[in-house]
């Protein structure tokens, strides 16, 4: 019997818990960000889908709007502070102050560190780490000015204690975000701006990979589902969590702690990479 499946997060909180809130979800195009946006929408929030890929944002917002939600799209580059400032200016003129910021998330794909290009490193860390900071800064400046308070959620990793061999840019950026979450929480607690993070474990595959195969490698016996993450993000942003700040929730079914007495045979990252990833044509 694996860990039980979560009920729909849309039935967790009192109805309309986020009515009159503007929730900004910064996305890299990952389905998890879209699911989180939909969860907030189900509680009456006005949702903004913001990211580098304007077309994706528009499609994602249209999908939410089709379900009777107030949803907006805006294109911007989270790694460029000027673009971040313009983005907030535009959307706050139109919708009012952002009360909840959900920073970007992306999943990694394995690459041996010695083969990783500087461009790859920056592509990931610029968006996840720098982008999360720049968005949080812009939001905090505005909410400190108008004294309205806010809640920020960053995406971290359950493996910040152990490292994430093979996924260095993602894991390093996310471990950095866990640390950033702590620092910003202390700096901004006096202004009622709460900063927390969620660290999802192995997410269920949406595509060709087999979930059963992945689940067999997990102590939880199943993959992390969108509902697991959404429930936690919703909780972290409600007034019921008014005293919660600086915390990173591991949502990983006790995956990072799994140190068996007889672990599976160790295979180097490079060997596994070369075995499982076909060489370029």
């Amino acid at each position: 019997m694996p860990l039980g499946s979560p009920p729909s997060p849309n039935r967790m909180l009192p109805p309309n818990s986020f009515k009159n809130s503007v929730v900004m979800v910064v996305t890299t195009g990952h389905w998890l960000s879209q699911e989180i946006a939909a969860s907030f929408a189900s509680y009456g929030a006005a949702v903004v889908i913001a990211g580098k890929d304007s077309k994706h944002c528009e499609a994602a917002a249209a999908e939410l709007a089709a379900a009777n939600t107030e949803a907006f799209a805006i294109g911007f580059d989270p790694a460029d502070p000027d673009s971040v400032a313009d983005c907030f200016e535009t959307l706050e003129q139109r919708l009012g102050g952002v009360g909840v910021l959900i920073n970007p998330f992306s999943e990694g794909s394995e690459v041996p560190a010695e083969q990783m290009s500087p461009a790859r490193w920056h592509e990931v860390t610029d968006t996840l780490l720098d982008g999360s900071l720049f968005c949080a800064q812009e939001l905090a400046r505005r909410r400190i000015d108008d004294d309205a308070g806010a809640a920020i959620v960053n995406f971290a990793t359950p493996f910040s204690v152990t490292g994430g061999a093979g996924l260095t840019p993602w894991e390093t950026a996310k471990a950095g975000l866990s640390h950033l979450t702590k620092s910003l929480a202390v700096e901004w607690a006096p202004y009622n701006i709460r900063v927390n993070a969620v660290a999802p474990g192995q997410l269920e595959a949406r595509g060709s990979r087999s979930n059963a195969e992945i689940a067999a490698t997990l102590s939880a016996g199943r993959c992390c589902q969108a509902a697991d993450v959404c429930a936690c993000v919703l909780y972290a942003c409600t007034p019921f969590a008014a005293y919660l700040t600086g915390h990173t929730f591991d949502i990983d079914g006790a995956s990072w702690q799994r140190q068996g007495r007889l672990p599976p045979k160790f295979e180097s990252i490079r060997s596994r990479y070369e075995r499982t990833i076909p060489p370029p044509e």
Partner: peptide
């Protein structure tokens, strides 16, 4: 506030949260 977080952590909504330590302290320990 502790009661709310305790019920969340023991509820099915937190089905995938296990082996986790949550600090609820307004960032004081940080």
């Amino acid at each position: 506030e502790l009661g709310w977080l305790a019920t969340f952590l023991c509820s099915p909504f937190a089905s995938y949260i296990t082996g986790h330590v949550v600090v609820l302290d307004g960032a004081n320990w940080l």
